[in-house]
Design a protein around this nucleic acid. Structure first.
Lengths: 235, 235
DNA sequence: ATGCCTCATTGGTAACACCTTTGGCAACCC
DNA sequence: GGGTTGCCAAAGGTGTTACCAATGAGGCAT
């Protein structure tokens, strides 16, 4: 809860209604309707609108109102937009594109971590991988998830690239969404546990290429486990 | 020019002063100072502050004011933040991290384009690569840049992943920054021209792995050409 | 068609009341 | 005396209302 509840509530409500497609592109809102719809004054409706404009969801034009923009204009990399879309009807497609993004970024981030991580981080990664194995074989999905998130976050933050680090929240949300949506097997695949340990070992020993390939295997596996896109070649 | 000039001017000014480190983390502003500093009312100062808050640059707290946040909290993937940082003193480091991001994303995007691009896009890519060779050997950097940007933008947009597509503006800015900052040889390397043609051919023929490796070569080459990282924080 | 007018709606300002938090100050207890 | 507690006042964001300016879409008249 960064700011006050008021703005966030209205922002969330309007943002969700747009990203869900409930209010389609081309639709026109006015400050008046936004305000009265949510019981706030025109001033805060304007601030909310500014935020939405900053996210590329709408564009305000004089005399006409606040027009909803098509998806091409959205800041789809923004954490709020991602969260809204993950909560809406496009959830599956969103998970797919995010997983592809992970596939692009996380291997390189792991390689970077192998080069730049502090000794503390290297040690924690090894520890995390070991504990993940324990929880994994036990089938304790919820606690496993927490460690999984922690591990990926650590790697991204230690990558030496703040662009990658900025994606750690997104990755966390993808991981959480995956297990809470029942897209995980009852107990993580042994291969996944192996690969997590491989990444931790590679980072700990500063072997960037090994970290990259191991991480690539992790994400690639997940990607394959996801519902295939309609027109993609059947694997 | 998304919104009105007024907001953008103030937003740019304050955003730049923060991202440049001119106003350090922990510094405290007030709506009053922002407003009077830039000759605007408190209301628009508040809207600007909300935007900055949305970008993770500041956080407003009652009774204390608007505190500048450390870089870890910034939305470094936002186009505005990137633009500000590219114009500031951290430009070189920013170019490095962005190039790493390109290295992560563009090969996968090219592979995606090989699978999903329309026939028109495939044809345009081949045409672009051919014209790039002509301009490249001629040493016409400015026109070459335009085609280069167009080609990368096309690939990202055709990748079938809106996350990748959302990065096309960023890539364009990196490419432009690179040539305008004199980081390009007087005439593009022959190998780069070859690889661009290879990408175009691979996408045209639907060969995703070839497109991926060729694009990886393009970005990897650029990455190597960049000044090696100067041990992070050397002022 | 062309040009002008109207008016809805955003852009921007000002003044106000409210609420939260901070920091000081004093009282109080050990 | 020193530290804890409690109260108070001011600072500054939060939210509202009222008001006017600018603008551009659509209609109307020529």
């Amino acid at each position: 809860m960064p700011t006050t509840a008021l703005h966030n509530d209205v922002l969330d409500a309007v943002g969700r209604s747009i990203t869900s497609g409930d209010v389609p592109a081309g639709a026109v809102l006015t400050l008046e309707t936004i305000g009265s719809e949510h019981g706030v004054s025109r001033t805060v409706a304007r601030e909310v609108m500014r935020l939405l404009e900053g996210l590329g969801l709408v564009r305000s034009r004089r005399r006409v109102g606040i027009v909803v923009l098509p998806m091409e204009d959205w800041n789809v990399l923004d954490a709020r937009v991602i969260r809204w879309r993950l909560g809406g009807p496009g959830r599956d497609a969103q998970l797919r594109t995010l997983t592809e993004l992970r596939h692009a970024v996380e291997p390189l981030a792991a390689a970077g971590a192998a080069l730049h991580a502090s000794d503390e981080v290297r040690a924690e990664l090894v520890d995390l991988a070991a504990r993940m194995r324990v929880l994994g074989v036990r089938g304790d999905l919820e606690d496993f998830l927490a460690l999984d998130i922690r591990m990926h976050e650590l790697l991204l933050r230690a990558s030496g690239n703040e662009m990658f680090a900025a994606l750690s929240g997104v990755v966390a949300e993808v991981l959480a969404g995956r297990t809470h949506l029942g897209l995980m097997p009852p107990s993580p695949a042994a291969e996944a546990l192996d690969q997590h340990e491989a990444v931790a070992r590679a980072v700990a020993s500063g072997d960037a290429p090994a970290a990259e390939t191991a991480m690539s295997a992790i994400v690639g596996e997940v990607r394959r486990a996801l519902p295939d896109r309609p027109d993609e070649e059947a694997s």
